[in-house]
Design a binder for these strands. Structure first.
Length: 109
DNA sequence: TTGTTGACTCTGA
DNA sequence: CTCAGAGCCAACA
């Protein structure tokens, strides 16, 4: 095995998340066999005009990650709300309910 | 090659 | 959950 198409796998996993659900960097990382940092880096390297629902990827705390551009984080929240994701007063998503489960049998045994 | 940086997560208190 | 620190992998200079 090699690192061929590492980003492709990351994007593929993210694309597998249905509308109305969200996932975390750590979950995607485990699915592709890498770390959360790399997942974030892959999204940061995402070109304009992609069809990857990057907005459905949030951090383990259930909140959008504050990146340098500030605006993008706000846009992410708007997009998620547009998809039916509900936020609380702390701008946090209920991961216990809206977190998409990839391989239920594969999650931390 | 080493060193720095980044859309993070985990562990311990 | 919050706060602080360490670990982690990949890309770039």
């Amino acid at each position: 095995m090699s690192k061929n198409g590492l980003y492709e796998r990351i994007y593929s996993v993210i694309c597998s998340v249905p509308v109305g659900y969200v996932t975390t960097y750590g979950d995607v990382a485990r699915q592709v066999g890498t770390t959360a940092r790399v997942v974030g880096f892959a999204l940061a390297a995402l070109p304009n005009g992609h069809k990857v629902p990057w907005q459905r990827v949030i951090n383990s705390m259930g909140k959008v990650s504050p990146r340098g551009d500030g605006d993008s984080s706000d846009i992410q929240r708007i997009l998620l709300e547009s998809e039916g994701v509900r936020f609380d007063q702390q701008q946090r998503v209920n991961l216990n309910e809206q977190r998409w489960k990839f391989g239920v049998l594969k999650q931390r045994l």
